[in-house]
């Protein structure tokens, strides 16, 4: 891997250079609420690299909450129809992506671009993107990436990875386009000492995680075995189900959740758009069929499904890794206190 050492100013130059060919997206701290959003940035300086994990994952960029797939108008007099594909390629640079969110994008890539069919809609959004990850110097309270081996430093899948050192930054190129950019700008190769310093940054970061997360290597895998084989008592799902408010929040904030609904929205003039919108398996309507038949009517069955998706090896086959990346957002958002770690604990006990 080509590794470079840069000052803050040079790092800004790298981002500015990317901004010439890509839309820039990165973390922004909202002054009023203190919340962090991963958003379109006007300029390199607007990106708050060191801000904590954004409250919403960046999946929106490749899997928009509301995506317009196609439009048509049915001419009922001529009885003809013209369909037009919507959605266009926009090169995007994601700056300051945290390692867990990168792992989640890899899950989405494997899910949408692998399998039997390629999802062209996702591919169009994803194509021509450039990913700059940022090593987490310290975990936030809800983080448990170490349990799922996604952080606190990204190991692969980025174009460039940035690590803050005592002075300046270490820049690792993880792809040919990342290397080309760095070489093109004539960046200075890092010294052995600077590379070693990054290792120490990562070690220190890992040491800051609570013992619970780092002490027991089998924390998640033991539960994954049980969830995969169905070796979980129905009472446990019932308990978990009782706590769910059926708000769907967990799915919306989860960087790997990608279920969607499709509907045709039509205006008064008969012009219609086919929309793909985020959906959640926690909602009763998710599996409901005509005649009010619902094979997954009970909330515990629906919760069971979510955690099967996140914690079973069957689902992992599609992502080539577990479906949870340990970002902890569902812990933040869930009003019922059944974020993923607490479910792992309940299944265990």
């Amino acid at each position: 891997m080509s590794v470079f050492a840069v000052s803050k100013e040079v790092l800004m130059t790298v981002i500015q250079e990317l901004g010439k060919t890509h839309e820039l997206h990165g973390p922004r701290v909202d002054r009023a609420s203190g919340q962090v959003f991963f958003e379109r940035a006007g300029a390199a300086e607007d990106i708050a690299l060191e801000a904590e994990l954004p409250s919403m994952p960046p999946k929106e960029l490749f899997f928009p909450q509301v995506d317009r797939l196609l439009k048509y108008r049915y001419d009922s007099a001529a009885r003809s129809v013209e369909l037009t594909r919507l959605g266009q390629e926009r090169p995007k640079a994601l700056i300051g992506l945290r390692p867990c969110d990168l792992a989640a994008i890899q899950c989405l890539d494997r899910f949408f671009l692998g399998q039997e069919y390629v999802d062209e809609v996702y591919r169009t959004h994803r194509r021509k993107s450039f990913i700059v990850t940022y090593t987490c110097n310290e975990p936030a309270r809800q983080c448990f990436c170490v349990c799922f081996h996604t952080g606190p430093a990204a190991e692969e899948g980025f174009d460039l990875n940035v690590t803050r050192l005592a002075s300046g930054y270490l820049l690792e190129a993880g792809s040919e386009q990342g290397r080309a950019l760095a070489v093109g700008l004539g960046l200075r190769p890092a010294t052995e000492e600077q590379r070693m310093e990054k290792e120490r940054v990562v070690e220190r970061s890992i040491a800051l995680f609570p013992e619970k997360a780092t002490g027991n290597k089998a924390w998640a895998s033991r539960v994954m075995n049980r969830v995969t084989t169905g070796f979980v008592k129905p009472e446990v799902w019932e308990e978990i189900g009782k706590k769910c408010f059926e708000c769907g929040g967990c799915s919306y904030v989860c960087p790997t959740c990608s279920c969607f609904n499709v509907e045709d929205a039509c205006g008064a003039e008969g012009e219609c758009e086919r929309l793909r919108t985020w959906d959640s398996c926690s909602l009763e309507s998710y599996t409901r069929m005509a005649g009010d038949h619902n094979p997954r009517k009970l909330v515990e069955d629906r919760r069971n499904k979510r955690f099967f998706c996140k914690l079973s090896y069957s689902q992992s086959k599609k992502y080539l890794r577990p479906g949870c990346v340990g970002c902890g957002r569902c812990v933040w958002v869930c009003p019922g206190d059944i974020g993923l770690p607490s479910v792992v604990e309940q299944v265990k006990s």
Partner: peptide
């Protein structure tokens, strides 16, 4: 089997039953 389906090609996940997708 019959399930609520939105895409038919294995992505919307509505038709999941356990580890299988009815559509694919």
């Amino acid at each position: 089997l019959e399930r609520n389906m939105k895409c038919g090609y294995g992505k919307c996940q509505h038709c999941a039953i356990g580890r299988t997708l009815v559509c694919t």
